[in-house]
Design a protein around this nucleic acid. Sequence first.
DNA 1: TTCCTTGGAGAGTGGAACTATCCAACCATG
DNA 2: CATGGTTGGATAGTTCCACTCTCCAAGGAA
Lengths: 215, 215
Amino acid sequence: MKLAELSERSGLPAATIKYYLREQLLPPGRRITATQAEYGDDHLRRLRLVRALIQVGRMPVATARQVLAAVEDESLDQNTRLGAAVWALPQGPKPVEDDPATAVARREVELLMRRLAWQECLDAGEEAPAWATLVVAVSALVRLGYPCDADDLAPYARAAAQLAVTDLDLVEGFSTPLEQVEAAVALTVLYEPVLLSLRRLAEAEESNRRFGTGD
Amino acid sequence: MKLAELSERSGLPAATIKYYLREQLLPPGRRITATQAEYGDDHLRRLRLVRALIQVGRMPVATARQVLAAVEDESLDQNTRLGAAVWALPQGPKPVEDDPATAVARREVELLMRRLAWQECLDAGEEAPAWATLVVAVSALVRLGYPCDADDLAPYARAAAQLAVTDLDLVEGFSTPLEQVEAAVALTVLYEPVLLSLRRLAEAEESNRRFGTGD
DNA sequence: TTCCTTGGAGAGTGGAACTATCCAACCATG
DNA sequence: CATGGTTGGATAGTTCCACTCTCCAAGGAA
C-alpha cells in the first residue's frame, strides 16, 4: 500500500507518518520507483505500536526510536535484547546530588533491594534508569516529609513482584523471539496507564468506603 | 522571608517562583509594602509540593493549579474535597469514538468493574478521568492484539485494590483534614513513579530468573 | 541624595511534536 | 505523447508548554 492508504488505515495524517519515517520510528517502505514506496501490514502494525508508545505511554519520540531499535537489533541474543529494550524505556530527571533527601532515598532504596534480594537490580544499581527514577521519587517524598522508608515501600515492591510474574507469563505466551521482545515492550509500557488508572479507581472506591456518607 | 531567600532555600530560580505565583500554584506572600512581600515556611513547603507534582509526577502546570485549588477549597467537606483533588489529577487523550477497539475496551472495563463491584466507579463511569484513561490504554492494547480482557486485567485490579488500602492507611495517619487531603494528592501522585519503577525492576529480576544465563 | 534591591508584568526562549509548503519524479488518462 | 494530478522526500513553519529575561517603579540602605 502507498503512504496515503497507510495514512487512511491508521487514521494518522500523512505528514505525521512522514515525520515518523524521518525520525526512524517506522522503517522505510520498499522502494518501487525513485519517488514511490510500498508499505505492508507490518508497517501498519508498527505505526499502531509507535502511536501507543507515544500517546498512551507518553514516551518521547527519541526514546521510542531507541527502544524500537533495540527490539529489532538482530545482533543481540534474546535475553540481552529484551533487557536493552526495557532498559531504554524510562525517562525522568536525574537525582539531585549533594542533597540530604537524595542521600536518604538512596539508602532506603538500597535497603529495600537487599531485603528483597533483587540481585540483578543490586548489580546494576543506579545505572538502571528505573532505579534512578525510584530514587528521585522517594527523595521528593522525603523532602515533603511523607513516610517512604524501606518498610513503607515494601507493600509496593510486593505488588510489583506479583505483577512482574503476570507480565512475564503474558510475554512467554508468545512464540517467536521478536514477538516476545515486542510484547515485553508493549505490555510494560501500555499496562502502566492501566495499572495507574486502576489504582486511582481503587483509591476512590476505598476512600468512599472509609469516609463516604451513605448518600 | 523575601522572595530571594525563598529562591535560595528551595533551590529554584527566582524567576521560576514568580512564574508559579503568576500561575497561582503558590499563594501570594503577605504584602509588607507596595513592592515587597513576606513568605513563610508554608510557602517553602508548597513550593516543594508543586515541584514534586510537576517534575516527579509530570503533571502539567494547569492541572497542578486545579488540584491545589481543590485541596484548599474550604467550602467543600472533607470527602468531596478529597475526591475533587484526586479527580482533577489525570490527563490524557480521550477515547476515540466510533472505533471498534474502543468499543471492546469499554465493554471489558465495565465488565471488570462489575465483577469487582466497584460501585462508586460504576456510578461515575467514564466521567471519571481515570476510567477514561483506562479505556484508552486498553483500546490501544486491543488494537495491537495483546490480551487485555477482564480476566487479564483482574490481576492488576487486585494489586490496585491492595495498594489503595495501603495508600488510605497512610492518609489516615494524618490528623487534620488539610494534611489528609494534601497527603492524598502527594501520595497518589508521587507513589506512581515509585510503583512503576519497582515494577520495571521486578520485571528485570523476573526476566533474568526465567531467561537469564547464569553468567 | 544616590544607588542597589525588590516584586510584578510582559515579552522572549528553547524544546518537543507535529504540520504545511515545495518540488521533482512518476503514473494514468486522453 | 502531452498533461494534470499524485507521490515521497526535504525544509521550514506552527503550536504548546515551561520556563526565563528584561524592564520598571517603589523601597530601603549608606
